[in-house]
Computed example of a mutant assay.
Amino acid sequence: MATPPQRPGFPARIDLGRGGTTPPARAAAPRPAPVRAAVTGDGLPVVPAAASTVRDSIPARARMVQQLMAEGISDPLVLRAMGTVDRHHFVDGALVPQAYEDTALPIGLGQTISKPSVVARMLELLMQGGLRGDNGKLGRVLDIGTGCGYQAVVMGQICEEVYSIERLRDLHEKARANLRPMRIANVHLILGDGMAGFAKGAPYAGIVAAAGGEAVPDAWIDQLAYGGRIVAPVAAAPGQQALIVIDKSRQGIRQTVLEAVNFVPLKSGVA
């Protein structure tokens, strides 16, 4: 039996840019003493933050979840994850008052953190695709477009293992900084070309993309497990995008086109 590939630990730094070479190692900064993350009554980690901010965020998160339920989100794992992760931890200080509104917010470099309703919708669609374990969670999944890291952390609550890939070096580093105090062992951050996926972690029970291209890259379909599902935006008409679901079985590929969406464009390479 072949030995499975060794997977990176957290926070992973896998640099797939610039001809596949890894930059010379830099001297490590002194590491602060580990801090045990707070947990909810369900045993899920809560993003560390100032006590006053955490207190203020609790009712805001609860209202956000109630709104998601009113809009039709019903998967209990998705709702619990959305109500657990502190979204304000992933936005700039000036935008914290808007963190739990159902709106996309800028995170720099022309990118945004997706609306909570869009994140919840895509993850619920992913969860409906099958390949869930006895605990209700999905297995290993691939997140295309890490951004600030928010969606990857939410996915970490509903999936056994998450590989999240980002092509923009500055955003990759920002996500690493955001996730570092959380010390979530099942979320791995990768710097690389998301259009190529991440073959070392395949096959995946699910793939989610936070950027839309003309079509879903063949690499994603190749890296998807039989019984797995891809949820991604694609071009539907000039200047328009639609959310699609792709299910892979041994009988073939089935694609379903859903509602109109608006995501940043999917690009190749590392910058």
Results as ranks from 00 to 15, higher is better:
Ala152Trp: 07
Gln6Glu: 14
Gly136Leu: 02
Gly139Trp: 06
Arg18Gln: 13
Gln223Gly: 02
Ile190Asn: 04
Ala219His: 05
Leu68Asp: 05
Leu44Gly: 02
Pro76Asn: 01
Gln66Tyr: 01
Val118Phe: 08
Gln240Ser: 12
Ile113Arg: 01
Val257Gly: 10
Val85Ala: 02
Lys267Arg: 15
Lys200Asn: 10
Thr22Lys: 13
Arg121Glu: 11
Gly147Leu: 02
Ile184Pro: 00
Gly227Val: 07
Gly269Glu: 05
Lys137Gly: 00
Lys248Val: 05
Val261Leu: 08
Met127Arg: 14
Asn262Lys: 15
Glu214Gln: 12
Gly156Ser: 01
Asp75Ser: 05
Leu125Pro: 11
Ala51Gln: 14
Val96Gln: 15
Gln255Val: 15
Glu166Val: 05
Asp170Gln: 12
Gly213Thr: 03
Gly129Tyr: 08
Ala12Cys: 06
His172Glu: 01
Leu109Trp: 09
Val162Met: 02
Glu259Leu: 12
Asn262Trp: 12
Gly17Ile: 06
Ile107Tyr: 00
Gln255Cys: 11
Lys248Gln: 06
Arg7Leu: 15
Pro76Trp: 02
Pro181His: 12
Ala205Met: 00
Ser52Pro: 00
Val154Met: 00
Ser268Ala: 15
His88Leu: 07
Ala260Gly: 11
Ile184Tyr: 03
Ile158Lys: 00
Ala104Asn: 08
Asp15Trp: 13
Gly269Met: 07
Ala2Asp: 13
Arg169Ala: 13
Val65Thr: 03
Gly9Asn: 10
Ala237Val: 09
Leu16Tyr: 09
Val257His: 13
Pro97Trp: 07
Leu44Met: 10
Val245Tyr: 02
Thr40Trp: 05
Asp193Asn: 13
Leu125His: 14
Gly194Met: 08
Val39Thr: 15
Gln255Ser: 12
Ile158Gln: 00
Gly212Asn: 12
Ser268Tyr: 04
Ile190Gln: 07
Gly228Ser: 07
Ala70Tyr: 02
Val54Ile: 14
Arg18Gly: 08
Pro217Glu: 07
Asp15Ala: 10
Asp102Gly: 04
Leu168Gly: 00
Ser114Glu: 04
Asp56Tyr: 06
Arg63Pro: 01
Thr21Asp: 10
